[in-house]
Design a protein around this nucleic acid. Structure first.
Lengths: 273, 273
DNA sequence: CTTGTTCCGTATAGTTTTTATACGTATACT
DNA sequence: AGTATACGTATAAAAACTATACGGAACAAG
């Protein structure tokens, strides 16, 4: 019996239960009935399934009237911070949230649809794009290849016929319209080397930190060795710097070196410091 | 017929379909069968349900062999950027992801469980906490009240008996142990004024931007008026500044003013510029 | 221009999942 | 002692879902 041969709905419930045990340390049928609107009988079923799946299963504590996870409970699956917060947060509906307003970044649906269409049908599309450096807006044909995500905003990768190279674009810099001229791509596009190259970034706690502070940084980023290894497409490396604040004055992490792994290749070809 | 009186599982499927139509502009039964592992018959059912729920419903396009959303499609529910990206991304499993490595922030499960326990049972807890300013680690008793989330890392709010006030704490600065001494809270805690005060922050595109650039910033943050209004608990205002990069040199948004709305009150009592 | 493919749709019977309900146990609060 | 809330189990009934078959429309390939 594994997670995989369960139905999607029950799997979702067991994963939620898994997070309850992992992050709250306790689980009740109530958690499932509230969240998924199932009956207590079904919740009891799910508990039985979960307890049989996980090793070193939680046990019922009659005092607490709840199942309690073992000290060394091993979750069935990893969880995102968002998922963890959902389990730890105790907001009621009507109250101010304990999370920052999040979805403030906005994406125009017509732009998204036009780009998605161009990507999936391998077509080029004509947009008016505003450069943030010069501040000017100019029309150009591009061939979008992939959407990308830095955790906050959605960007995309495209071949710019104007520049003759692949670049990262920002949907919000496209002038919004209901639809856009599109066309067939005649000659095959060049190979997007930066996209297919892997950047392996090695980070360490800033040398200006005390050893206790460095231990905190290691804990926060989840590494215990000297260095933290981050792997990302070279084309997206810039976003790592910005999002992790690596280039800011008081940065607590600093780059030690960056290795590039080229496609069709498993060896490191180049190292920058 | 509304979303609310559907079962959780079907609701999730219709919401996913809703995102397909909203962000991709097209939807197929395949989308549902792949993602949720349901039969095509059930997917057809879900389509029927969705089409009856949404106004100005998508229509089948026999050329495309897909349902196509109307130009002015209105989604049933808003979606987070993460959800949108899931719908737009075209990664295959084995390939490098198009999203930045996300869950690199880490949280110790024993710390989370101890804090969650203290919060839900209103107990105090003794921790060793490392100050990032002084770099020193010292034990102290705190009474945690709520978890908070800045979109990336989970923090928490607690009353510090040492300082005699409520403060924001970072779980990763707590020295990890398997369990922590806890105690009953004798005297009732003071009122957490900053927590219950609402900060209304008014932002505008930086005055150094051209009007085209300012239009881009408005689009990216989803406002069309002069000012963008952001509401957040005063206790969490600091995180907004940092996460939105408001105090960085090249910031594209700048604060115009901040209004404070105190609890038990609907009027603005104080304005800072 | 026939054949195969891939979308869509509908219908039926059968299986699985889930609910509603009832009944029993243990702990805790008043 | 009575009430409430956790837990558990069992059963019949309802709902959700699957497997399968059949039919239509568009399109690509032989």
């Amino acid at each position: 019996m594994t997670l995989d041969n369960l139905k999607h709905a029950q799997r979702q419930r067991l994963l939620f239960l898994d997070r309850c045990f992992t992050w709250r340390g306790v689980g009740r049928r109530r958690d499932l009935t509230d969240r998924f609107g199932i009956s207590t009988a079904q919740a009891a079923n799910d508990f039985r399934a979960y307890l049989s799946l996980v090793e070193d299963a939680p046990e019922y504590d009659a005092q607490l009237k709840a199942y309690v996870a073992k000290r060394h409970h091993r979750p069935l699956a990893p969880s995102s911070m968002q998922d963890v917060f959902e389990v730890l947060d105790t907001s009621s509906e009507d109250e101010l949230p304990a999370a920052l307003p999040r979805a403030n970044r906005w994406l125009d649906t017509h732009v998204a649809i036009a780009l998605h269409d161009a990507i999936s049908n391998k077509r080029k599309i004509k947009i008016s794009y505003t450069s943030m450096s010069s501040g000017e807006t100019a029309p150009q044909w591009i061939a979008p290849t992939r959407f990308t995500f830095d955790g906050e905003t959605i960007h995309f990768r495209a071949y710019s016929f104007k520049r003759g190279e692949f670049r990262n674009f920002h949907p919000s810099r496209i002038e919004p319209k209901i639809d856009y001229p599109t066309g067939e791509i005649k000659a095959p596009l060049p190979f997007d080397l930066e996209w297919h190259t892997l950047s392996v970034i090695w980070l360490r706690p800033s040398v200006y930190l005390s050893s206790a502070q460095a231990a905190v940084v290691r804990r926060e980023y989840g590494f215990s060795d000297d260095l933290l290894k981050v792997e990302v497409r070279k084309a997206l490396e810039f976003y790592i710097d910005r999002r992790w604040g690596l280039n800011e004055p008081g940065a607590r992490l600093e780059k030690v070196k960056t290795e590039l792994v080229w496609p069709e290749d498993n060896g490191t070809l180049s190292t920058r410091s």
